[in-house]
Design a protein around this nucleic acid. Sequence first.
DNA 1: AAAAAAT
Length: 503
Amino acid sequence: MTEFSQLGLSPTTLQAVIDTGYTTATPIQAQAIPVALAGRDVLGIAQTGTGKTAAFTLPLVERLSKGRARARMPRALVLAPTRELADQVAMSFEKYAKGTKLSWVLLIGGVSMGDQVAALNKGVDVLIATPGRLLDLFERGKMLLTGVELMVVDEADRMLDMGFIPDIERIFKLTPPKRQTLFFSATMPPEITRLTTQFLKDPTRIEASRPAMTAETITQYLVRIPSSDPKAKRAALRELIGRADVKNGIVFCNRKSEVDVVAKSLKQHGFDASPIHGDLDQSLRTKTLAAFRSGELKLLVASDVAARGLDIPDVSHVFNYDVSHHADDYVHRIGRTGRAGKLGQAFMIVTPADDKSLDKVMKLIKMNPEELVLDLDWSNLGGARRARAETKAAVVETPRSDVAPSASEAEPLARRTRSRRSSKATAPELAPAVVMDTAPAPAPAASEPAATPVEAVSAEPRLRQADRRPGGRTERDAPAAREGSGFGSDIPAFLRRPVALKA
DNA sequence: AAAAAAT
């Protein structure tokens, strides 16, 4: 355990840290801060949730606190892949630089340039930017980057995904070679390695253990539904939200259009939900995220713009309305919950069309999430598609005499679906299954069919490979969490009565 | 199959 007081920070900076309530540094902070303070380059292999932002913000504040900004000659530059992440860095800066005279400006697209230009003209120490707006302003001659002493690249691998590498390369070349560089990436694909060998000088490589990937703090559930019809998916989603004790949650969709539709539908059904994605006006994005952060908004319906990096300390649930096409996105999505030592639950709605994506996710997380089966009446939820799904289900199905002895073609699909086992389960036998309470969900005013009892089929939860998370544990992380079934003290109410099932 | 980011 390293205390912040041991890291060589000045009293002013240390006080700012103490004021935020932190005393113990995370591993990446403990390792990176002294190196960065010594003026050396840092190559940090770390994901969000490791305390990465403070790991570069604190040395930045410290190293810049002596000296002053000149007009259009910023002294430091922080690059982030999305506007929201840049804003998050700015918030961190606001906290840690408050005892100093340092100034900073957020340079992101989607907002007017006026204030940004005014700040640059006046002279600002730190630019916190997304690459597009930074280069735009640069090309307009609004600043020079020759005075940059320190440059931070955050979430480099995501920048790669987004096609930003040429921009980053260009920005590197606009800054003086003698600058200090703090470079962070969750993974090190070849392109990123190339960039670091080209632009970092003898960097100290620091690897933070992966944060809660499929961690002990996140309980994952999988919900198979027989239809890919959006109506069925939305009904399933409402059912889940209604039954889980959601304090606040993020619903992830794969498409922006789907985000809009789902958010609208949830609202119509009386849920407190708002959409966020890249096609929405930036002021709305900012407002929505702020409302979610403050607890004012309960459900954030999001595209993958919110999948990575967003640090909202207390998200109780993540719902994957769609299975991510890229498995690592799934990991990032569920990583929005179970943060800061809290427990979280992640649900994934899986339709027959999602087999391939699900495969990839399961391979990556190396575990089988608990499988829940919603006993909704699918007959009104999918029309023609339902017929197809039913045929398919009938083929895959393994009848189980102990549960559904009379399973037959004549029975409603929902009933037979119960006996389906997790197709990817490598578990030789299924652990005791769990049947949900028969109490119906608090049904919001809805036109779509009311819920019928819900049942869960549970595969042995295998969470032991989970990495340990840094940081303390709090309320939601009850010690009882990993006893018995592996659920926390917050076992979903619908997951209680155990019933033995055989594979 | 998509999303993100400059306009």
